[in-house]
Nucleic acid binder design. Structure first.
Lengths: 128, 128
DNA sequence: ATTAAAATAATAATGATTATTATTTTTATA
DNA sequence: TATAAAAATAATAATCATTATTATTTTAAT
């Protein structure tokens, strides 16, 4: 559980501290600030590792590129179809329970749910 | 609505007739059977076009590569985490209505929902 | 029929992700 | 604590899905 190398620790810390839902590349850029010679491959490797450990997860429904977040279970996401911005979204009333129960009944491993929108910035831009 | 070129028609027909949820590459292979010199780029272009028209859509929650299906609205999907097999799944009771209403209330454009499992074949294989 | 617009084939380019490999770091054990 | 085995890493090459380009062909509109 705690056998985290310094790099692995860094990747995790970086994601925890970023308020957005970064791509691997963004995590890499952020990591370089503290560990200038960290390798992109290391970031990918550790993201995969941490995902397998259940410490972090990919935001479902992003089709351009994988985006990561810690604590995926507690909320869902609103994804802008235009710019890809991702915003945390509380589950609508009872929905989480419903889905979890359904998964349990049918022996599914889990589910991926995201909502799509055009974020305010993109809407503003469209009007110009 | 009906300005479908022969290639576009072919792409659509192929997907309609495939019982699986093919990737662009698979659609391309299938198209080649009837139009041997069709280009992969054409398949991609027409998939994008048909998606924009709402005739077909991408199965949400597939992280390896995009997978397509017609009539996305009527059902959800079970995706095998190991081999990527996708199986149509009816919406659990009331769930569709709930999600649609939520989208309407919050002015979301839509949602993506998929369930994850390890399919029977992969489970069998794991036991060997 | 003639011209403009759209679609296409072929292929090159891009961009995210994964694999490789030589080296360094960590861990386990004597 | 020395030392050997295992794991992790940096650097970079390779892969693979997807998109862009461009010259050509097909379709649609006058």
């Amino acid at each position: 559980m705690a056998n985290f190398s310094s790099r692995r620790q860094a990747v995790l810390e970086v994601i925890k501290n970023m308020r957005c839902h970064p791509s691997a590349e963004r995590v890499y850029e952020e990591c370089k600030k503290s560990i200038p010679n960290i390798s992109l491959a290391t970031v990918y490797r550790n993201l995969a590792y941490l995902e397998k450990q259940g410490v972090l997860g990919r935001v479902p429904g992003c089709s351009e590129m994988e985006r990561y977040d810690v604590e995926l279970d507690g909320h869902t996401h609103a994804i802008c179809k235009k710019c890809g911005r991702i915003v945390d979204l509380p589950y609508p009333e009872n929905l989480k329970k419903l889905l979890d129960e359904y998964c349990k009944d049918r022996q599914f491993n889990g589910f991926g749910l995201s909502f799509y929108n055009i974020c305010e910035d993109c809407q503003r831009e469209e009007k110009l």
